[in-house]
Design a binder for these strands. Structure first.
Lengths: 341, 341
DNA sequence: AGTTAGCACTCTTCATGCGGGAGTGCTAAG
DNA sequence: CTTAGCACTCCCGCATGAAGAGTGCTAACT
């Protein structure tokens, strides 16, 4: 199914032109703007072949060609080159990672923001699964007479907290309870920590039982929390810029889909192509409402587990640039989490 | 400027009909659906008067009437009655507040979600200003060898945390530092706490100086953080349902405005009308891009200071219901924060 | 004097029809 | 195999016209 040199050039030209303008592209335009040394007529013939082969389509029987999903796939797999971000741009973006240590949550939020602003597409980060993370530190802190703050730090720097009711107790007592929790629950993976907490609860019949029960409950809720909780998303507005949104009902559908977090399922469900930043084009997606869009997303590793970072844009997105930018963020996130021992 | 009984009824009818349908309303429709015992012709005359007085307008020279801002204002101030939420609905919504204690942040997020879902408008909560809050508890917790977690609990239950670098130190040392911080900074208002921290920094020349400097820096950033950080927003999609969004560029403008938090300024800048849930209609708003919309928002008190909770919807929003729902949430939030001693 | 019916008038909306333009596919010649 | 030429198709924009909704006015009614 390999394309000869000229067909490849023409397909690439059509894709790039269509990405730029959003309009169907005709033989004339290709001949004019991409110097291939042949006439429009020749290009017409080639485009006819490419359509036959399924790489191109038409919006109606007699206007220019538009890449099909298969055409885009061919383009991203074989035709497009890697591009590099400009010096200026990568420096700008890097500054985000160089700034002072923040908690992971706000870092990820800023990453999403930068990513969407840099591309004009919707950006997302899917945090690592809790199941496989472990607890680095757990503390119970006095706040008021009858309230204490439970703070849990995961090994990758996520901090969760929760206010719980406590019976009146002295500082020493609270420290004692805190100690017990730390001893029993630290450095245990979240999937097992629930059982540990239950076990602890069984043993502990004293007045602290209620406190421990609340801790157990919170741990439970942490692991049960829907995937959408781990999902940071931003730049949905950007999508409105895309001309394919002349029709508002589509926006609504998409937003609905995104708000209830099925985006995650889409990514999780399909095994991504093997390319580095994975690319999912149009119909390759599982969820109906995003079959008009493309994903470009990469993986960053945190300790044993991993998170995703990526973009959602129209099928006619600037893939080379999207890939370059996603790869950039991917690498920087990996660095950050690596240095964090 | 008082309206006679019949004009009032007709104005109310036009507003309510327009809210329901989104279309200009004609004399015929008013006569048919609201039994006023007079013919369309009479209503036409009255509507002519109301237009003369500035309460109604026309979209074009010969189709039905549409309420003007002044008309809506008259409606909300004088004409509309208070409605009560149905038993079923208020029970549903109340369950949100009855559930187990969570940290304030997630409570507010859920409130926003519920509020927007209950109304189909965009909902927001503007948390209380940090300036006037005080610190209830501050702790420094060991996480790894060279990292510690700074946790700060404000008097109204907000929890902020931040990872900081620390020199190697024993548990006892860290507890000692933590103690110092607590002694010096607890129960001091955030506006003063910065100075305290600076003073502490001057005195402390030991190896903990760096740690304290980082704490000071974080406190600084907490108070300086833009208002948008205190703003929880949700349900922007709901706005897309409104027919006034046939035009996409408006959506974009609005979203832009909202994302950069000028919504807050709008509310802060204008002194609200004195009605309980404040209502700002169309041109009464400061910011250009929301002059097409209305706000309905209330105030909830937390300790000495206060936050806002409200809705942003089209001018033709269901004001009685919006008011009822905002008032409901307002009251429930007040209760929650009151019980929290 | 207030109310009502009738009617002409205005303005929108929708469908219809008609060039102009862009682009294709085919054919025939280079 | 490539190219020029040409007929054909289809979209798009625009004007035209008919239908519908609603008003404002006038004149009659109570």
């Amino acid at each position: 199914m390999a394309l000869d040199e000229r067909k490849a050039q023409i397909l690439a030209a059509v894709v790039e032109e269509h990405v730029k303008t959003g309009l169907p592209v005709g033989s004339r335009a290709v001949a004019r703007r991409y110097r291939l040394g042949v006439s429009p007529a020749t290009i017409r013939n080639e485009m006819g072949d490419l359509e036959e082969m399924g790489y191109l389509g038409k919006t109606h029987a007699s206007s220019g060609r538009v890449p099909s999903d298969k055409g885009y796939r061919m383009y991203v797999d074989e035709l497009m080159g890697d591009i590099r971000l400009s010096q200026r741009e990568s420096q700008m973006l890097e500054s985000l990672f160089r700034s002072k240590i923040k908690d992971v949550e706000s870092l990820l939020k800023e990453v999403v923001k930068a990513l969407s602003e840099a591309t004009n597409y919707l950006a997302f980060v899917l945090g690592p699964e809790y199941e496989t993370t472990t607890i680095d530190a757990i503390h119970l802190l006095p706040v008021t007479m009858d309230k204490a703050l439970l703070v849990i730090v995961s090994d990758m720097g996520f901090v969760e907290n929760c206010l719980i009711r406590v019976p009146p107790m002295s500082r020493e007592e609270m420290e004692y309870v805190s100690e017990i929790l730390a001893e029993q629950l630290c450095h245990v993976s979240l999937s097992k920590v629930k059982d540990r907490a239950q076990a602890l609860l069984k043993r502990e019949t004293s007045r602290y039982a209620d406190v421990i029960a609340q801790v157990a409950e919170f741990l439970e809720s942490m692991t049960e929390e829907p995937e959408s909780e781990r999902l940071y998303m931003g730049g949905a507005v950007q999508l409105l810029r895309q001309p394919e949104f002349k029709d508002i009902s589509r926006v609504q559908d998409l937003m609905q889909t995104l708000e209830n977090g099925s985006l995650v399922k889409n990514i999780a469900a399909t095994q991504p192509p093997t390319t580095d930043p994975a690319i999912m084009i149009g119909e390759e997606n599982e969820i109906e409402t995003v079959k008009e869009f493309s994903f470009v997303y990469g993986t960053f590793r945190v300790r044993g587990t991993e998170g995703k970072i990526g973009l959602l844009g129209p099928k006619r997105m600037n893939y080379p640039r999207a890939v370059a930018i996603v790869r950039f963020f991917e690498n920087n996130l990996n660095d950050v989490f690596e240095k964090r021992n």
